Simulated scan of single mutants.
Amino acid sequence: MSTADLKPYIEPIQAIVQRHPRTITLTALITIATPWFVNNYNAFIDMGPGGLPWNAYGWLIALYRKPFSRETKSTALYDKDSNKTSYLKDPASIKERRGERPKTTWHVFPSRQLNKFAPSDIQKRLIAVFDKHASANPSLVEVVPSRFERLHPALVIHSSRTSPHKAATMARREICHIHRGKDFSLHATMAPQDCKLVIERGWGERHPLAGSHFLPKEYMLLYAPRDDEELAAVEQFMCAAIGYMANTQAVN
Rank of each mutant, 00 (worst) to 15 (best):
M1T: 14
M1D: 12
S2C: 08
S2N: 15
T3G: 14
A4T: 15
L6R: 12
K7Q: 13
E11M: 09
E11T: 12
P12S: 01
R19V: 10
R22H: 14
T23R: 13
L26H: 13
A28Y: 09
A28K: 14
L29G: 03
I30E: 04
T31Q: 05
I32H: 06
A33F: 13
A33V: 05
P35D: 06
V38N: 11
V38D: 10
N42P: 11
A43Q: 15
D46V: 00
M47A: 00
G48N: 01
P49E: 05
G51N: 05
G51D: 05
W54A: 03
A56S: 12
A56F: 08
L60Q: 04
I61A: 00
A62Y: 01
R65K: 13
R65W: 08
F68S: 14
E71T: 13
T72Y: 01
T72L: 01
K80F: 02
K80S: 12
S82W: 04
N83F: 03
K84H: 03
K84A: 02
T85K: 14
T85L: 09
Y87A: 02
D90A: 04
S93R: 14
S93D: 13
I94S: 01
I94R: 02
K95Q: 11
E96H: 07
R98M: 09
G99L: 02
R101Q: 14
K103M: 13
F109G: 13
P110S: 00
S111K: 11
R112H: 08
Q113H: 05
Q113W: 06
L114I: 10
N115E: 15
K116R: 15
K116N: 15
S120W: 02
S120E: 13
R125Q: 13
R125N: 03
A128S: 14
A128P: 14
V129I: 07
K132I: 07
K132G: 06
A134H: 10
N137C: 04
S139A: 10
L140W: 03
L140A: 02
V141I: 04
V143H: 05
V143L: 03
V144G: 06
P153D: 00
V156D: 06
V156E: 07
S159D: 15
S160W: 12
R161H: 11
H165P: 07
K166Y: 01
A168Q: 06
R172H: 09
I175S: 04
I175Q: 08
C176M: 12
C176H: 08
I178R: 06
G181F: 10
K182V: 08
K182F: 07
S185V: 09
A188T: 09
A188H: 07
K196M: 01
I199L: 07
E200Q: 15
W203S: 05
W203F: 10
G204W: 01
P208H: 00
A210R: 14
S212Q: 09
H213D: 12
F214N: 05
P216H: 00
L221G: 08
Y223F: 15
D227M: 04
D228M: 01
L231D: 01
A232I: 06
V234E: 05
Q236K: 09
F237T: 10
M238C: 13
C239Y: 12
A241P: 11
I242A: 00
G243N: 12
M245L: 10
M245D: 08
T248P: 14
Q249N: 15
A250Y: 10
N252R: 15
